[in-house]
Amino acid sequence: MKAMRNGCQRATQPADLNRFVLERLNAGDVDGLVALYGPDEVLIVPTIRAVGHREIRAAYEQFVAAKPEFAAGETQPAIRNGDLALTSVRLAGGGVTVEVARRQPDDTWLWGIDQPSLR
């Protein structure tokens, strides 16, 4: 894994993103969460559609303010096609996450589209 400017690790595999988001959510690390997305990417949660770092930051600031604790789900194998990968996690409560990751020029991965909870 590669280190980022802010000290966070960068994903060298698409599945790293799922682990990093869980760690950073539980730590309340908004900067680290935002760093998992490209600058113009999309986060979709039940009541929010956030596009770009500024809106994604605002969504995560609101979300982590309640200090929720998340348990690891069952990470599914990434489905890769060139510079894109579909990632997902089966959640303990029966939900599932769905994300599209994009390979970056430095061979690390960032999420392009993230919908963290589907039923």
Rank of each mutant, 00 (worst) to 15 (best):
S117Y: 10
Q9G: 15
C8A: 14
G112T: 05
V89Q: 04
P46V: 07
L86G: 10
A11H: 14
V45C: 02
L110A: 04
D106Y: 07
G95T: 13
V45P: 04
Q13S: 11
V42M: 03
I44A: 10
V45F: 06
T75V: 08
L110T: 06
R102K: 09
T97V: 03
I79S: 08
G93H: 14
A72Q: 04
Q104D: 14
P77Y: 13
F63I: 03
G32N: 09
F70P: 13
P68D: 02
P14H: 01
I56K: 08
G7T: 00
N81I: 11
A85L: 04
A3I: 13
P46G: 12
P77K: 08
L86Q: 12
D31M: 05
N81C: 12
A71H: 01
G94P: 15
G112L: 12
R90Y: 12
I48A: 06
E69W: 03
D40E: 08
A3G: 04
G73I: 01
R90D: 10
R19K: 12
N26Q: 12
P105L: 05
G82F: 11
W111Y: 15
E74S: 07
R103E: 03
A71T: 04
E23S: 07
I48W: 07
V98E: 01
G32Y: 13
R80F: 00
S88L: 00
F20H: 14
S117D: 13
T97G: 02
A3R: 13
A72R: 05
A92N: 04
N81M: 14
R119P: 03
L118K: 00
E61Y: 10
R54D: 15
Q76D: 12
V96G: 00
R119K: 01
A71V: 03
V51R: 04
G32W: 06
R90S: 09
W111V: 11
K2V: 06
V98Q: 05
P105M: 04
T75W: 08
T75F: 08
H53W: 10
D106Q: 09
P46N: 07
Q62I: 07
A66D: 14
R5I: 01
C8E: 14
G95Q: 14
R54C: 07
K67N: 13
R57D: 06
P68I: 06
N18E: 11
G52Q: 04
Y60Q: 08
E69G: 01
G32Q: 07
T97K: 04
L110V: 11
V64I: 13
N26C: 11
Q62R: 15
S88T: 00
P39I: 00
G95P: 09
L43H: 06
D83F: 10
D114W: 11
I44M: 11
D107C: 02
D106F: 09
D16C: 05
Q115Y: 09
V89S: 04
F70Y: 15
G73D: 02
P46R: 12
L25T: 02
N81H: 15
G82P: 15
Y60H: 15
A85I: 11
E23R: 07
A101W: 12
Q13P: 03
T87Q: 06
Y37K: 00
C8S: 14
V89A: 01
G93A: 13
T47Q: 13
Q76M: 14
V89M: 02
D40H: 10
V96P: 08
V51D: 01
G52L: 02
D114P: 05
D31R: 14
V34T: 00
Q62V: 09
E41Y: 05
Q104E: 14
F63R: 12
